[in-house]
Design a protein around this nucleic acid. Structure first.
Lengths: 163, 163
DNA sequence: CGTGAAACATTAGCGGC
DNA sequence: GCCGCTAATGTTTCACG
């Protein structure tokens, strides 16, 4: 959880791996002007410290049939921060449900009037509508929602700035 | 851009690589019950078709010192959808600027009252404030903005649902 | 940090279902 | 068409200087 100090070489390595996570260690080593073994030691260290969280393949949403991207603001019921009946508080119950819904790829608790912001990938508006009616709006913790739909992707990168 | 047909094996491969993008071809092959060569051919094919867009390393924002995540709604000036002076229209000018700002990791044009939704990673509130005052609000295309800050990450995955 | 060598992975060609 | 074998080439990953 704490911030970790990174030297220039570490940052170069991270920048290279943020752009291509499948580079061979040899290629990374070349690009950061190191020989393979110290480079590998640094990479393993960055993995160990949790600076590198994961390696993943990124898919093209449209090519796998997910043509609609929505951001949904959710407001929860206010009553029962501690449930009387022994159930979960609304926030915990909602968080648990979100983990189960595959179309919700991201969910953050936020400041402001809305409690949560969801990123939702679905095939089309019909599927979105079904998800709303049959799942999200039926959830007992949900008070109301406001949805917006992506018209155009200007930029979307997983690469964080390494100042 | 078009949707691509995937059989069960392709979907298994994608699901495995979305969870770990550095698996060796041999390991992928084992998990999908294929021998290495057809598995590799399928993976290369999925890359070629653009279903797999990219392989990346995901970093932990906090551990590299980015402790604050904001979502910023931006509304643009309405006048001059085509600029008289030969400059870019506000939307195009704004999009071009967004590409240059490293703290903005995502930007979508959206339906609704706000024109754009930005995801912004910064060190702390002071840096956010500086980014607002000195960069975003100074941009000639920007009319006004509304910011919300992430209090808690419930879920955030790059893995898309493979229905 | 760099070198070298063993273990392991990738990938093209070819034959079979 | 798609699968699986084999064999050459390239990569990873140590112990050690």
């Amino acid at each position: 959880m704490a911030k970790i100090e990174l030297d220039k070489t570490d940052r170069k390595i991270l920048s290279v791996l943020q752009a291509d996570g499948r580079l061979t260690n040899q290629e990374v080593a070349e690009r950061v002007n190191l020989s393979p073994s110290p480079c590998l030691r640094r990479i393993r260290n960055l993995e160990q410290m949790g600076v590198i969280r994961q390696y993943v393949a990124l898919l093209d949403a449209e090519r796998i049939g997910l043509g609609l991207l929505a951001y949904v603001n959710v407001r929860l019921e206010r009553h029962g921060e501690r449930s009387a009946g022994g159930g979960l508080a609304p926030r915990a119950a909602f968080a648990a449900s979100v983990m189960e819904w595959p179309e919700v790829v991201a969910c953050y608790a936020m400041t402001g009037e809305m409690d949560f912001l969801l990123r939702v990938h679905v095939e089309d508006m019909e599927h979105f509508s079904r998800f709303m009616m049959e799942t999200l709006l039926r959830h007992p913790a949900v008070l109301d929602v406001k949805s917006s739909f992506a018209l155009q992707r200007i930029k979307d990168t997983t690469a964080l700035p390494l100042a």
